[in-house]
Design a protein around this nucleic acid. Sequence first.
DNA 1: TTAGGTGCAAATCTTTTGCAGAAAG
DNA 2: CTTTCTGCAAAAGATTTGCACCTAA
Lengths: 147, 147
Amino acid sequence: MRQVERITQQLLSQGYKLTPQREATLRVLIEHQEDHLSAEDVYLLVKEKAPDIGLATVYRTLELLTDLHVVEKMNFGDGVARYDLRHDRHDHHHHHLICLACGAIQEVMEDGLEELEAHVQRTYRFTVLNHRLDFQGICAQCASEKK
Amino acid sequence: MRQVERITQQLLSQGYKLTPQREATLRVLIEHQEDHLSAEDVYLLVKEKAPDIGLATVYRTLELLTDLHVVEKMNFGDGVARYDLRHDRHDHHHHHLICLACGAIQEVMEDGLEELEAHVQRTYRFTVLNHRLDFQGICAQCASEKK
DNA sequence: TTAGGTGCAAATCTTTTGCAGAAAG
DNA sequence: CTTTCTGCAAAAGATTTGCACCTAA
């Protein structure tokens, strides 16, 4: 559980308080790294451990963690924001495979955009700070079920 | 103005009616192809020509055009859906440069993802039907102003 | 003539905010 | 102690929906 401690240190060192609500939220995010949770999802999961937490606090905590680059706020077009734990501070190198049949979201860790990014940088004189790439399609499982 | 006619033909051939509201909305979308309009933006622009149109109709028309693949509904993370006219039926090959300083959204017409897409297809056995790539950063203009 | 479309207002859903009380440092 | 947090309820936005009235085909 080194991860929780590293992040709480970061909170404290920047003058934020470590409250039980924040710690519980952090734990949920870490336990569900694979899951791309919405604020509501996080709220329900935190509620299991700390029934008194309010939804507004979850929103506020997620916003704080986004500012601290602990999580990344994402939008997959389904009307809710989802939050991804960042793997490291400078990580902007993972993509998503979104299955249109079952809705599963899988991560692709390889980057593979360096060349295209350099091209954009040169051709459009655009300084790329981050990028975001999603593939929509049919996952292996759904494809095999259809047969 | 061949574009309007082509799309209205498509509407009619699929059993939808061509109403003045739909035509006006279509014209606005075509005249502002570069602009990544939100539903509200479209509403205000259509209202200039046809003051009686309702916001709900604009939403319904945009939904219809999305189903028909005439436009693509996009989400840049600013809380509103934006609509991009598709360049052709099978087009999934344009990316966006989003300037974090001024908010401008520019299009990149090159694809350059073929290789990565093939890799994903092979490695994850994921059938890619579409993709979506945004670069966030600083545009040329904002970069030069900062000096 | 009639199925589909429209405008309006109300409803819904996600996210944000004001405020008084609570608690971390 | 004091500043920051929290929960609650209300507010704010964006989008959707129910319904009675229109209108394109």
